[in-house]
Amino acid sequence: MAPFATIFSYPNNFRVQRAHALAALGGLELVDAPDFSIGTSNRTPEFLAKFPLGKVPVLETSDGFCLSEGQAICRFIAESGSKADQLVGSDVKTRARIEEWSCFADQELTANLIPPLLMTLFKMIPYDEARYNQHASSVERAVKRVQVALESGNGKFLVGEQITLADIMVAGSLVLAGRFLMDAEMVKSVPKVKEYLDGLFEIEEVKKAFGGLQICEQRLRN
């Protein structure tokens, strides 16, 4: 039987790790495209015919459905598996709350993580201390928002008592943050966040997809 879908990207892309976690939770087989080389494979006429922007990650199902944008890919996978009602919500308010957290993950966390990431780990843009500090401050603010939500005691997870798309989206961003910006000092100020992440990584599908949680001792700068 053919896999549910193939995903195309570079190694260790947290957006792909999110997708794999959701696929595993929903009982779907998601495979990485073999011999895919970023900068080469995504510029071929065949690839661009399916994905005109040439960006990754992108997904193609076994029946030829093609999809780009990490958030859309994750939602599609979550809705396609056996735990769709759990992962995306079974009523309109729950679905809205899950979507709220999914948007938060990309707009408040990821959007502020990418510029410092490009300055430090990838060194793709010049280091700008003022800009770095601005984005780091925004990440801290967002992480504290997660802390406040967890302190409210409305459930074990961000939306209720079962893991949902919201948790995978937020966890993906926080895993990325832990590699270079969310350091030990920051984590001390948000104990509920650390406890929450530790609990998520006790779930085998999550642990396998992300490969474990790492918190840097000190945030990476230039």
Score class of each variant (00 low, 15 high):
Q162K: 14
C216T: 15
G70N: 10
V88S: 04
P11R: 01
R179Y: 07
V31M: 02
I203K: 11
V58H: 01
G199L: 07
R15W: 06
D91H: 12
L109D: 03
L87E: 06
G64P: 04
S90V: 04
L118T: 04
D91Q: 09
A171Y: 02
F122T: 03
D63S: 09
T164I: 06
E195L: 08
D85R: 10
Q162C: 13
V175G: 02
T40F: 12
P45I: 01
S138A: 15
V88R: 00
N13F: 11
S80R: 08
M119H: 04
L22N: 02
Q218I: 14
E129T: 13
R141F: 10
V146I: 15
L22Q: 00
V159N: 10
A49I: 02
T61I: 08
S41I: 00
M186F: 11
E108Q: 14
I73Q: 03
V206E: 04
S102D: 11
T94K: 14
A84K: 11
I7S: 00
E140D: 15
Y132I: 10
G89N: 04
E99N: 14
Y127N: 07
P126V: 10
M182F: 12
G178T: 03
E140Q: 15
E79W: 08
E151H: 07
L22S: 02
V16H: 04
A171Q: 07
I98P: 05
A105R: 00
V31W: 00
A177I: 08
I98N: 01
S152E: 10
L87W: 04
Q71F: 09
L220S: 13
T40I: 15
K93E: 12
I98Q: 01
Y10M: 13
V159Q: 09
G178S: 02
P115G: 09
K123P: 07
F122P: 04
F4V: 05
I98M: 03
T120D: 06
A72L: 11
F76P: 01
A130D: 10
E205L: 13
Y196A: 09
L117G: 08
D91E: 12
V190N: 01
D85T: 14
E185A: 14
Q134G: 15
G39K: 08
S189T: 06
A2L: 11
K55T: 11
A24M: 14
N222H: 11
M124T: 11
A130F: 04
E205G: 14
R221S: 07
G160E: 03
M1S: 08
R43Q: 12
T61E: 05
Q162E: 15
V56S: 01
L150G: 05
